[in-house]
Nucleic acid binder design. Structure first.
Length: 363
DNA sequence: CGTCTTTGACCCGCGC
DNA sequence: GCGCGGGTCAAAGACG
């Protein structure tokens, strides 16, 4: 499937920005203390969405950040309180809930596409991207299915897919978040199969590649530990889940789609009922308790718990998970400050998070 | 027995 | 054109 490195247009943009602003210094890291975060919601977004004042939205904010001080694109997008999509979880719920800093793909951001919750499956960036490359089913998500079916044999040889050279492959929307944890692979409720591991150039820690095991679901995620701060795990999700719940309630959360609200938002669902979905038994829950999530953009919300997480996203899809929260979210008064951790990260973050983003927003 | 992880090889895009 | 790095495949092994 996707073979293209993280070089989407967006990414390039990001990189450019990154270069441009590569200077900076350090920014204070965000620590979001979300009280119910881990106990209550999937991503720490407890039922009270509120707490959220920052949650996902923050991410969005970041996005803007990336795109430019100009605006809160995602924010705007999300603004209209949309009915919580209760259906497809488009985005994989990152173990943490509140994304702190998100970097959206510039292209998307620019387009400001409203996140379509329901469309999770089609997360298409509706705009152009989708068509451009995705044509023949090269996509991760749906495309994969086709490939698998039809090309299995051919594939045997390993990726032979003739791809059009002219077209650059577009990657699915991606978003990354950082978590402070001892565990690399956080259980986010979905089932993932590890399909590769690679050494990361600037990091002593390898990067692991996972794919959602659900049939037809091409969501992928990469997990990498920050070289600078081994305690930080950077997880990048790519694509949107085409199924409601974790593929198989096998080990993770054994909840059914119907009950899982977390899926509602498209992944990060933070619906008010979210809390119900976390079972104390679930690994997820445990993780929350054990890990700290760093929120890059979060101004201090805080409250009680000590969870910190940073979120970075480079995809338009992200919004999807926001939606759930959309109705409750509050526009962060302040842009994401900076992710100290991110700044240091040289791995995925580099690709995904523009330096600028990591820095303090300067106006 | 089925599923998942590990691991080496291969392919691709990009920079030089 | 070449080399590098990233991403993916798939066989083999490990595990429950």
């Amino acid at each position: 499937m996707d073979r293209k490195p993280l070089n989407d247009d967006a990414e390039e943009l990001i990189k450019r920005r990154h270069e441009q602003s590569s200077s900076s210094g350090a920014s204070p890291s965000f620590h979001l203390d979300i009280p119910g975060a881990f106990g209550g919601g999937v991503f720490g977004l407890p039922c009270d969405a509120e707490k959220g004042s920052l949650g996902f939205m923050d991410l969005l904010g970041v996005q803007d950040y990336v795109s430019g001080p100009a605006a809160y694109s995602l924010f705007d997008l999300l603004q209209p309180p949309q009915p919580p999509p209760l259906q497809l979880p488009a985005q994989p719920p990152p173990p943490l809930l509140s994304p702190a800093s998100t970097v959206m793909e510039s292209s998307d951001a620019a387009n400001q596409q409203p996140p379509t919750p329901a469309n999770s499956s089609s997360l298409s960036p509706s705009s152009n991207e989708g068509q451009t490359n995705k044509t023949a089913g090269e996509e991760d998500g749906e495309g994969e299915e086709e490939e698998e079916q039809g090309n299995n044999q051919e594939k045997t040889k390993k990726q032979l897919k003739p791809k059009k050279k002219n077209q650059k492959r577009q990657r699915e929307p991606r978003f990354a978040f950082m978590t402070k944890s001892d565990v690399d692979h956080l259980d986010d409720g979905y089932r993932w199969r590890k399909y590769g591991q690679k050494a990361v150039k600037h990091s002593p820690y390898p990067r692991s590649y996972y794919r959602c095991t659900s049939a037809g679901c091409g969501v992928k995620k990469r997990v990498e530990r920050s070289s600078e701060d081994p305690s930080i795990v950077v997880t990048t999700y790519e694509g949107q889940h085409t199924h409601l719940t974790p593929a198989t309630p096998r080990g993770s959360l054994g909840f059914s789609p119907e009950t899982a609200t977390y899926g509602a938002g498209g992944g990060f669902g933070l619906s008010s009922t979210t809390s119900s979905f976390l079972h104390p038994q679930s690994n997820f829950y445990q993780h929350h308790q054990q890990h700290q999530y760093l929120y890059g953009s979060a101004p201090s919300v805080n409250t009680g718990s000590s969870a910190s997480a940073s979120f970075i996203s480079s995809s338009p899809s992200i919004p999807s998970f926001n939606q759930a929260q959309t109705h409750n979210f509050v526009r962060p008064s302040a842009l994401p400050r900076s992710l100290s951790a991110l700044q240091r990260d040289h791995g995925l973050l580099e690709d995904i998070v523009p330096t600028r983003m990591r820095e303090e927003p300067k106006e």
